[in-house]
Design a protein around this nucleic acid. Structure first.
Length: 270
DNA sequence: CTAAGGACCTGTCGGC
DNA sequence: TGCCGACAGGTCCTTA
């Protein structure tokens, strides 16, 4: 679920429901997530009014006068808006109640997600050394080309490295490399400036498309679980090993890089 | 500094 | 049908 487009979709989904609303109560059923939820959350939230909901990388930032909640969805996390005191399921770890009668609920079966309170989130350890946002103008071919010189790591792992650029997850890494015609095994340091141009265009293009498709998710979002067939129809290689490439008809293969699956077309990607 | 691998969790699916 | 291993949209931390 939570690639950057999904996080952005979540942000857009919850903001209108909680902006300008005041927190009345916080219920934490399970503190043990990726990191234990600090009691700073319990202490700081009640009485606070939401000023905005923003995003940095895959973190949702819920901003208040004195600080921010940093919420990461991990692999399986999701947020939803429910009524105050709606019955909670086994994986509903956190409820934040508002004076509007609505509750922001965080659910996460695998508990790789996290929740922090920070007075200055951008200075927070987890955010301060992140690379640029992929949709920002600072993220361009020149930047990637320069950053990659001397790097032996594969291009796929390189673009998934959040120190280099944030928000490119396992799905869109494979997809953007397919669109750019680059073999995922190629060393990042040996890719030309021109090819980085194609890659940057592909990354930006697919993320924008996926965010637009997030509108579909948004509608499901308020129905119990946002599962549905989100963007799957538009994926060219991810999860399609054994199928024919839509471009050249040869068979899409899957390999493992950095303990993650990669999908690509040997014919189209060189 | 870079790169590689382990760790953290639960749920689901395919094979035997 | 039941059990078991493999694998899953993330990313930090340790080690070499």
């Amino acid at each position: 679920m939570p690639e950057l487009p999904e996080v952005e979709t979540s942000r857009r989904g919850i903001e209108p429901h909680i902006i300008k609303m005041r927190i009345t109560k916080v219920t934490i059923r399970k503190r043990k997530l990726r990191w234990p939820i600090s009691y700073a959350i319990d202490h700081n939230l009640p009485g606070q009014k939401v000023l905005s909901v923003t995003r940095r990388a895959k973190y949702l930032l819920i901003n208040f006068k004195t600080g921010s909640i940093m919420l990461h969805l991990g692999m399986t996390g999701s947020v939803s808006i429910v009524k105050n005191s709606a019955p909670a399921g086994i994986h509903d770890h956190v409820d934040i109640d508002f004076d509007s009668g609505k509750t922001l609920r965080f659910r996460d079966p695998r508990r790789f997600g996290s929740l922090h309170w920070s007075k200055k989130p951008m200075q927070h350890k987890l955010l301060k050394s992140l690379g640029p946002e992929p949709l920002n103008d600072h993220f361009d071919a020149n930047y990637l080309w320069k950053k990659s010189r001397g790097r032996k790591v594969s291009i796929k792992q390189f673009i998934m490295n959040a120190q280099i650029v944030v928000g490119v997850g396992n799905i869109y890494a494979s997809e953007s490399l397919f669109l750019a015609g680059i073999n995922p095994k190629r060393a990042a340091g040996k890719i030309s400036h021109n090819r980085y141009k194609d890659l940057v265009d592909s990354i930006k293009g697919i993320l924008i498309k996926a965010i637009k498709a997030g509108g579909t998710t948004l509608r499901d979002f308020y129905r119990s679980d946002g599962k549905a067939g989100y963007f799957i129809q538009q994926l060219q290689v991810y999860g399609r090993d054994g199928e024919h490439c839509s471009y050249c008809d040869s068979i899409i293969v899957s390999i493992v890089q950095g303990q993650r699956s990669t999908f690509y077309c040997k014919q189209c990607q060189t």
